[in-house]
Amino acid sequence: MPGDSPTAAVLIIGDEILSGRTRDTNLNTIARFLAALGIDVLEARTVGDRANQIVEALNALRAAHDYVFTTGGIGPTHDDITADCVAEAFGVPLPEHPDAVAILEARYGDDFNAARRRLARVPEGGSLIANPVTDAPGFQIDNVFVMAGVPKIMTAMLEDVAPRLRTGAVTHARTLRVSGVGEGTVAEVLGPFADRHRDLSVGSYPFGHGSDGEVGTNLVIRGKNADAVAAALAELWKALAEAGIAARPVTD
């Protein structure tokens, strides 16, 4: 689906995600946030708290996409190494940011200890991302946005990120639901249709389990032009009907 919309990738950092102890919801939140701005998320990776993996993944993603969003690993403990890894990836020092120090001193007062001072470290050349929940800031350096892993905090940080982003054309999506029919049945109709509409994204997503609920397939058409998406939906609906396959449009 060609277009000139900005692209983005998400890098989720943390052993707790890979171990299954913590369920990640940040990818979904970021993807929805960016979709509303017309920014296409094209890639997501999850890595543990291992410096070489973080640096390697970050360098690959920031070279391939307009924006990279990282979540996790910017807390006060020894295993919070994201800031260190970002500085290494960019080849810059990791000093304390004076504005971050001031913010944290105001919050913690006499409890602003050595561990909490780690929260003030920002790669040289970086700017702060406001954190209205706990005050401890994230940061931006070049096209990389480094945010907290706690979903409530990460979501709040996005408010400060939004004005910094170049927006694009929003992707429109329309869905046809085919009930009682699996992907194999619709494939003969869907394949030629997708070939005729290479400017659109055409996907097939089965649902149900066959024993305790409705079984079928959702056919989703996505594109930057709402009229083109609507026309394609009507064409696919007709083609399915001609093949004896009943479908109905649904609201996404």
Rank of each mutant, 00 (worst) to 15 (best):
F139Y: 13
N59Y: 02
T167P: 00
A136P: 07
V55E: 03
I245C: 08
V178P: 03
G20P: 11
E43V: 07
L37H: 12
M147E: 05
H78Y: 10
R248Q: 14
D199F: 11
D66K: 09
A8H: 07
D212G: 04
G125I: 06
F139I: 04
A83Q: 01
V101H: 01
V133Q: 02
N113C: 05
P93K: 09
P249K: 00
L236V: 10
A115Y: 14
A102T: 12
L61N: 08
D142C: 03
L233G: 08
I221R: 09
R21C: 07
R177S: 12
G75V: 07
V92E: 03
F112A: 06
I54C: 01
P137N: 07
A120M: 02
T82E: 11
A31V: 14
F145L: 06
A247M: 10
L37N: 04
I13K: 01
A36G: 15
L240V: 02
A44Y: 04
D142L: 04
T175H: 03
E183M: 10
D135Y: 06
G168Y: 05
T175C: 10
L119N: 09
S127A: 14
V10Y: 01
I103G: 05
A239E: 14
D15K: 09
A36L: 11
L240K: 11
A9D: 01
V161K: 01
R23Q: 15
S211Y: 12
M1Y: 11
A247K: 09
Q53K: 02
E88W: 00
R196K: 14
D160F: 00
D15L: 04
M1S: 15
D227M: 10
H172V: 10
D99W: 00
P95V: 00
H197E: 04
F145C: 09
A136I: 02
R107S: 05
G72I: 00
N131F: 04
K224N: 02
R166D: 15
A239H: 08
W237D: 13
A247G: 07
A228L: 12
L176D: 00
R45E: 14
I221E: 06
E56R: 13
A100N: 08
E16K: 11
D24S: 00
N225I: 12
G91N: 11
L61D: 00
Y205E: 01
D142K: 14
A243K: 12
I81T: 09
A231P: 00
Q53R: 14
A31F: 07
D24A: 05
D99S: 06
V229R: 00
A241G: 13
V122L: 08
P98S: 01
H78D: 15
I221D: 05
L236S: 06
A173K: 07
P123C: 05
D135K: 13
D227Y: 07
A230S: 15
A8Q: 00
M147P: 08
R107G: 01
R222M: 11
G203L: 05
F207W: 06
K238L: 09
T77N: 13
I141R: 04
L233Q: 15
